[in-house]
Simulated assay, not measured.
Amino acid sequence: MPTSAKIKVLIIDDHPLFRQGIRWSLEDAPDMEVVGEAENGQEAIKLTERLSPDVVLVDINLPGLNGLEVARVIKRRDPRIGIVVLSVYEDDDQLFQAIKVGAAAYSSKDVNPEDLLYYIRTVAAGRYLINDSVLAKPNVATRVLHQFRELAATEDEQTSVLFAPLTSREIEILDCIARGLSNKEIANELNISGQTVKNHITSILSKLQVNDRTMAVIYAIKRGWVRYGYPEQGRVHENLEG
């Protein structure tokens, strides 16, 4: 959560009525402040540098410099800022591209005000809600993990043999998660209880300092700790509580 009393929000959208609607939705939230609005990418980047918002809401279909390009520039210049990408309709390719530019959340523009407030608060706290979107989209999860596997393959040998701070059992569990297995399926495959699986996953997240299963697998793949297949087509990852 930002150290200031209120979460500073910048709205980027080329439709004045939509910007006003978001502003109205946030005005009654005592922990938020709309610090600025922009109608195009160039203006947004300048305002971001001047206003230092905590969270930026950006429309993906901006004229000129599109929302993804704006998000990429903002994250490169100030990684602290949380990006929420908004789109007229949800699209797997847009979700994948939003992940690549470092967005923390991706949502359709018809999101209700209560959910939008939740997204902003969660992103301001440093969490990546976009991972939840990935878990619900097997095709996107496959693309994300496949790309990270390709990145891992280009790393030098020293990187791939770095000491992994995980036990052999935890590596086994990460392998299972990368193959798209549920907690129950992992328990059956490794002949352990479901609660033991959950305990191991909690330990993995703590050691790697990540928030969820997807990021744990990505972290492990980038370092070459997980060498088996990435999620199978059509498999849906469950969340940690699953």
Score class of each variant (00 low, 15 high):
Ala38Leu: 08
Asn66Trp: 00
Ser87Tyr: 09
Ala29Phe: 05
Gly41Glu: 06
Asp110Pro: 00
Glu33Ser: 04
Asp59Ser: 07
Val56Cys: 01
Arg80Asp: 01
Lys75Glu: 07
Val70Tyr: 08
Asp28Tyr: 11
Glu33Phe: 04
Val88Lys: 03
Val85Lys: 07
Lys75Trp: 13
Glu90Ile: 03
Gln20Ile: 11
Val84Phe: 10
Leu51Phe: 09
Gly64Met: 07
Gly36Asn: 12
Val73Lys: 14
Pro53Trp: 01
Leu51Pro: 11
Glu37Phe: 07
Asp92Ser: 15
Ile81Met: 11
Arg72Gln: 09
Val34Tyr: 07
Lys109Tyr: 08
Val34Ile: 05
Ala104Lys: 00
Arg72Asn: 06
Asp59Glu: 11
Leu65Asn: 07
Arg23Gln: 13
Ala98Leu: 01
Ala71Ser: 11
Val70Trp: 02
Thr48Ile: 13
Arg50Gly: 02
Asp110Thr: 09
Val111Ile: 15
Pro63Asp: 01
Val85Ala: 10
Val56Met: 00
Pro30Lys: 13
Asp59Phe: 00
Gly102Ile: 01
Ser108Asn: 06
Ile60Gly: 08
Ala44Gln: 06
Ser108Val: 09
Glu33Tyr: 08
Gly21Lys: 07
Asp78Trp: 04
Lys75Gln: 14
Asp54His: 05
Glu69Ile: 04
Ile81Asp: 05
Ile74Arg: 14
Leu68Val: 13
Asn66Arg: 00
Val34Phe: 12
Ile81Cys: 03
Leu62Lys: 03
Val88Ala: 08
Asp54Ser: 10
Ile99Gly: 01
Ile22Asp: 09
Asp93Ser: 12
Gln97Cys: 02
Gly82Met: 03
Gly36Ala: 03
Glu69Cys: 02
Arg76His: 01
Ile99Ser: 05
Pro30Thr: 13
Ile60His: 02
Gly41Leu: 01
Arg50Ile: 06
Pro63His: 10
Asn40Glu: 12
Asp54Ala: 03
Asp91Val: 05
Gly64Ala: 10
Leu65Met: 04
